[in-house]
Write a protein that binds this DNA or RNA. Structure first.
Lengths: 223, 223
DNA sequence: CTAGAATTTCAACAATTGTTGAAGACGTAA
DNA sequence: TTACGTCTTCAACAATTGTTGAAATTCTAG
């Protein structure tokens, strides 16, 4: 076990360094030499383990994607089962999307925080937001949307999708950790306290979805 | 006039090319040669007009910032005056933040669309989101937040700031134009139809803010 | 211990980067 | 025209980029 750990020592060090730097400066803002230096490793080693730079980027994304997806799906199915046979509350669904991000890993391993920031970068990147996010997270998200629709009967699909878009945007900006809200609020809000941020975002987003029910009821009533 | 136009022809061409490319690929993803080529100009000319690369980036941001800020503030003050002496509706305040983005320029000049995408890039960038957004847009946003607070009596400031953060995140992701929502919704939602997107975002965000009033009333009722 | 495979480093490559100074082209006013 | 200041291009720079093949090291199985 310890031998196995040591064997892949430098390979993981490269992934960690790449994860951290890509999250901070984006794909083009990071050189392989900067990654190698932070990992305490020669430049050529990155190419040996992962091939070209772009493949290293994919490897960083892939490493934690499946773990995160499974965490979220577990939380979601637990929520569904607890409410069965009724659909779950909207807020509980949102929570199942948010809480797995913190419960287990946040403190234990700071790499996850970098990973979330990296996803934020990818998600809002015009180059890769459309393709990479789809590639790594689509099945999990489709399941969430399906459950969400059961909790929003009579709401048009288009509203649900744009609602998810708002949710994703809010989450993305929070994890990007720009520190902007700190300035704006005179340090009343701290952008590095992600669990606290998510509490507020959950309430805000859940209200946005719940209002769709009222709106669609009003619509059908007038017909 | 026409002479003045021609005089600054290439200078503006450089700004336009830089705006477009920076929005698509980020600061580090664009070379001065790529900008020069798209502008139909020699590489050295960018440096002559704007100095180092970083200063060109700032020049692109600055060019439209004041215009956009004044448009938004005009719309906001009109909303305030129309509702006076009462505070405006939350939804009207949000609209005053969104509508100036489209009314005048969207169709006339496609450069604005690139500019919005560029702001999306800057806003979600860990490197510059905290500083550059503050530098260019803070006074306008503080005015919006002040008006928003008048429409949300009894709501804690912290909730308002996080609400704005959600608003900003949703808007940012929409303008990033990643095409992700198109995939996700099977082309039910079109990420390049920004006015349509914003209609949905306005409703969603306004509901998030409005719910804060109900929540704070419930809180004070139980005390 | 030894041979061979896997890992890591070293040295160097061609290509590209931002930047610069000198030379040329342009417009303008005398 | 001439002369001058602005704008634009040309050519080249040192530095940095991703990548590669060979050498050196470490690990592992027999």
């Amino acid at each position: 076990m310890a031998a196995e750990n040591k064997k892949q020592d430098k390979r993981e060090a490269i992934l960690n360094a790449a994860e951290n730097l890509f999250a901070k400066h984006g794909y083009d803002g990071v050189t392989l030499r900067a990654i190698a230096k932070e990992a305490g490793v020669d430049v050529a080693l990155a190419n040996y383990h992962f091939g070209p730079k772009r493949d290293l980027f994919d490897a960083v994304l892939l490493r934690r994607a499946q773990i995160l997806n499974s965490w979220r799906l577990e939380a979601l199915e637990a929520t569904v089962q607890k409410a069965a046979p009724n659909p779950p509350d909207v807020k509980d669904i949102i929570r199942a999307y948010f809480e797995p991000l913190f419960k287990r890993s946040q403190v234990q391993e700071p790499g996850w925080k970098s990973y979330y920031a990296l996803i934020a970068y990818v998600n809002s990147s015009p180059e890769w937001g459309g393709t990479l996010m789809t590639q790594f997270f689509d099945p999990m998200i489709h399941r969430f949307l399906a459950v969400l629709k059961t909790a929003l009967p009579g709401v048009p699909d288009k509203s649900v999708y744009w609602g998810y878009h708002c949710l994703s945007g809010a989450l993305t900006l929070a994890f990007a950790q720009t520190g902007r809200i700190d300035h704006l609020s005179n340090d009343l809000c701290k952008s590095d306290d992600l669990p606290d941020a998510c509490d507020y975002i959950v309430d805000f987003v859940a209200a946005g979805f719940s209002d769709m029910i009222a709106a669609s009821e009003k619509e059908t009533a007038t017909l």
